[in-house]
Amino acid sequence: MLEFFQQLANGLIIGSTYALLTIGLTMVFGLMQILNYAHGEFYMLGGVVAFWVTQALHLNFFLSIIVTVAICFMLGLVFERILMRRLYEVPIVTTAIVTVGLSIFLQNSVFMLWGNVPRTIPTPFPLKPLTIGGLTFTSLRIFVLIVTIAVIVFTQIIIHRTKLGRAMRATFQDKDVAAMTGISIRKIYALTFAYGSALAGLAGVLCGSYLTISPFMGSSVTTKAWAIAIVGGIGNIPGAIFGGFLLGVVESLGAGYLSAAYKDAYSFIIVILVLVFRPNGLFSKKEL
């Protein structure tokens, strides 16, 4: 039984980073109809930038997180400005092709500049695990869980309690009317894309502190985020959060009780089941 709870807890921790990763993807698709295949590259950039910041600028781990998230937000604004903005009125397939291109470009640029040596972001957390109620965790993983949950709550507060969030929801539901009441749709799009990129970057730093960072780590993450977005219902943020935790737990339990070798396959089994039984996702309506 203890084994079960341990796997469950591990799954929730991984799942929280999945949720973080998927929020941006699902918002960008829901709002702007862009199939962003480069989303995982922002996750990768988060890891790479944080590593670089801790090494070259000698910032400590916590500061490096803040700096990295800010940089990813800014990169999001830049890419929105030079690329995404051109994709708002084009067919969805085109957006997929262009973002696949962006993904290849970013992967190989980082590969050229940085090489392909797997690295890990150094953290000040002790390696010795903590024991809480019979379950063992590293303090780093607990830190990851706290940060992701705080950011998810923060995101919900922005969306549901602020004027900006209200404007985002209105744009989501009817963008023409939103524009006619004075909301700048361009600004909402740019901020949404940048925010999603920043969240992906944050997930990258957090995962990069206990997994390894490499220029190509984003691809599998993009696929997984899509799987989660589909499970949750594309364009639905509560769905993305729930789906993230669900897939984290399923993977963890699957790896613990069945076979760790097929860890990534379990998510896709869930996707197939959802597509068969609830083709629009668990939370089927578009909803911020």
Binding site: R166, A167, R169, A170, Q173, D174, V177, A178, T181, I183, E287
Partner: peptide
């Protein structure tokens, strides 16, 4: 906006 409240609609 169907999924905003009356008050949110007005305020926007």
């Amino acid at each position: 906006w169907p999924k905003l409240t009356v008050e949110e609609n007005l305020s926007l």
